[in-house]
Simulated assay, not measured.
Amino acid sequence: MKIDWNRRTCARRGHITYLPHETHLQERLHASTALGTAWRCLRCGDFVLGEPHGSGPARDAPLVPRGKALRDLFILRFLAVERALRGLFVVLAALAVWQFSNSQDAVRQFFDKNLDVVRPVAVHFHYDLDHSPVVDTIRKTFGYQHSTLLLVAALLLAYALVEIVEGVGLWWSQRWAEYLAVVATAAFLPLEIYELTEKVSWVKIATLVINILAVLYIAVAKRLFGLRGGRAAFDEERHSASLMEVETSAGVSAPAPAHNG
């Protein structure tokens, strides 16, 4: 089933109407009904009863996203939420590393004490804790210097800040955020591919595929880096989809009525 993004958005946010000063446009955008005057919504094109939400020259009418632009906005906001949530999780990881750096000795003692407690259970199930990769990895972290852990926490916070700023920018459909999303996401793709060579998991595969699709979609759909005509073509596409622009063009191109002389 095809989604009508215009009416879907109007049902959630309400209609947007506008009274242009140009007389020929007023005739195209308003209608008189038994219930009163109705004006066409600049998003869905339906006639809406009541006074217009704004007025002025047609060139000053709000540029309301319609159709494909609304679909793109929905996808960008989905990515924005994913980026913001990822940023928050990384902040929590940075705080955990920072907290660990301040109590490294206490955590080591706690770990060794509890390792001795579970050792008989591990022996019962024929599991060698002393040569366990997980245990070895945890023990290696105890050997990290305090300054190294602080550096890791700082780098995690910097990464989290980039993700959160990127998410906020994508939510408001800022072009700089789209560039940031493409560059930042593409920069980590080699690392994600390398991790797959170390150990394959469905989570890693899904993450890699989503990030690749996100880079391609944003770059192509938003015409970044000069693709498909670049910014000029993107702005022209947005304006050509505007209902006010469509009606203005229709008014200009409409043939003048013939006069019998």
Rank of each mutant, 00 (worst) to 15 (best):
W5F: 15
A11N: 10
G14N: 03
I16A: 03
E22S: 08
T23R: 15
H24P: 02
L25A: 05
E27I: 09
E27C: 04
E27P: 04
R28P: 00
S32W: 10
S32C: 04
A34H: 10
A34G: 06
L35R: 15
W39D: 00
C44I: 01
G45D: 07
G45R: 01
D46C: 09
F47T: 04
V48A: 01
G56D: 07
P57E: 13
P57F: 10
D60L: 14
L63V: 13
L70G: 04
I75E: 03
L79C: 06
E82G: 05
R83H: 10
A84M: 14
V90T: 12
A93I: 05
A94N: 07
A96T: 12
W98L: 15
Q99C: 11
F100H: 09
S101I: 11
S101N: 09
S101Y: 08
S101T: 10
S103L: 11
Q104C: 12
A106S: 14
A106D: 13
F111M: 04
K113I: 01
N114D: 11
L115G: 03
L115K: 13
P120L: 12
P120A: 07
V121Q: 09
A122Y: 02
H126R: 09
Y127M: 02
L129D: 03
D130Q: 07
V134H: 05
T137Y: 11
I138T: 11
K140Q: 09
K140M: 04
Y144C: 02
Y144S: 02
H146N: 05
S147W: 04
T148C: 02
L149H: 03
L150G: 02
L150M: 13
L151M: 12
A153S: 15
A153F: 07
A153G: 13
L157H: 06
A158C: 10
Y159Q: 06
A160S: 12
V162W: 01
E166R: 10
V168I: 15
V168R: 02
Q174G: 10
A177N: 04
Y179K: 10
T185A: 13
A186L: 14
A186K: 01
F188V: 14
E198Y: 02
E198P: 00
K199V: 04
K204G: 15
K204S: 15
I205E: 06
T207G: 13
L208F: 15
V209A: 15
I210Q: 15
N211I: 05
N211M: 14
A214S: 15
L224R: 01
G226R: 06
G229E: 07
G230L: 05
A233S: 13
E237T: 08
R238T: 01
S240G: 01
A241T: 05
L243A: 00
E245Q: 09
V246G: 00
V246S: 05
T248W: 14
S253N: 12
P255Y: 09
P257F: 09
P257N: 03
A258T: 13
A258E: 13
H259S: 12
